[in-house]
């Protein structure tokens, strides 16, 4: 069962005196259960609009959306109790303490005060719970937003840029938390982030969008594979020239690096090992150059942006 399902969603914003601006252009999105799903796209690609539409804040012009196997926005009141969300910056009363802000939200859904304390503990704010929200650092505000999203013990957690404003230690903690939630077998996390490394480190699956359209989706490893370079770094100490001759004779294309060769178009790296060993040349390094999500993302969205 897909926890989030968006099919053919269109949304345009109309501004007086200006042409309509397309935010979603037939977007499809499917998020599997109990996974951490990254949601990537350049600024203005429609990520936040999609999340807002799923949470009933924005109406799509056409297309269908389902949350927890229920159509939304029609059945949103029935499923919202299982959805926790942090969308962009946390929205709290600045003059209320963190604890009071959480208690007010908890009161709406009948969440206990114990749970408020638990969530403050989870995000490391229990000792600062009585401080006013406006006195919090950006990172503390973000943590409180995460705490609010966790209050309902959601089965779907929607996090929009959760690492914003966090220091490196905080970013690592948030990532650990997301990983733990994703691996507890009960929670699905939809993580919208502009930090490609974050998605690569934390997510099981990823969807990349640009200009309101789906560009790529699947397991992170599979999406990375689509951008694989096929380049392999080869080092044969003391016999670099001999290795070059052997590999050229075997039909490879090479580029010289400072202390190694970069072999291009390699589908199976073991063919390099076999070719060199046949001439009594032995490797000290054979490193496939794998694509990172950043390069894949830039490749995939280059035409769209």
């Amino acid at each position: 069962m897909a926890v989030v399902e968006v099919t053919g969603a269109h949304k345009s914003y109309h501004r007086r005196g200006k042409p309509p601006q397309k935010a979603l252009d037939g977007l499809d999105l499917s998020v599997g259960a109990h996974r951490v799903h990254g949601f990537l796209g350049p600024n203005g690609s429609g990520k936040t609009t999609t999340i807002r539409a799923l949470l009933g804040l924005v109406r799509v012009d056409s297309g269908s959306m389902r949350l927890l196997d229920r159509p939304v926005p029609e059945d949103l009141p029935d499923v919202i109790g299982s959805v926790g969300a942090l969308v962009e910056s946390p929205l709290f009363f600045p003059n209320f303490s963190g604890r009071r802000n959480l208690r007010l939200l908890a009161g709406v859904a009948g969440v206990s005060r114990d749970r408020v304390e638990e969530c403050l503990e989870i995000v490391g704010l229990r000792d600062r719970g009585e401080d006013k929200f406006k006195g919090y650092s950006l990172g503390m505000k973000q943590r409180l937003g995460i705490a609010a999203a966790l209050l309902k013990e959601p089965t779907l957690l929607v996090l929009d840029e959760p690492s914003n404003g966090l220091d490196p230690a905080g970013i690592r903690e948030v990532r650990e938390l997301i990983k733990q939630l994703g691996s507890d077998g009960q929670t699905t996390v939809l993580l919208s982030s502009h930090l490609l490394s974050e998605v690569q480190q934390v997510c099981d699956d990823v969807t990349i969008i640009a200009r309101g359209k789906l560009v790529a989706t699947g397991a992170v490893a599979d999406v990375l594979a689509t951008g694989s370079t096929g380049d392999v770094r080869v080092m044969v100490p003391g016999h670099q020239q001999a290795a070059y001759d052997v590999l050229m004779a075997a039909g490879f294309t090479l580029t010289a690096l400072a202390d190694a060769w970069l072999v291009h178009g390699v589908t199976e790296p073991s063919t390099i090992t076999r070719a060199l060993a046949a001439h009594d040349l032995y490797l000290s390094e054979l490193s496939p150059i794998s694509a990172d999500l950043e390069s894949v993302f830039l490749d995939l969205t280059a035409e769209e942006v």
Binding site: L55, G56, L57, P73, L76, P77, I80, V83, G84, A85, V87, P90, L91, F92, F93, L105, V108, A109, A148, K152
Partner: peptide
């Protein structure tokens, strides 16, 4: 914009 946050709880 806490009214928006409230809509995450009561839609």
């Amino acid at each position: 914009r806490s009214i928006v946050a409230l809509l995450f709880w009561e839609t």
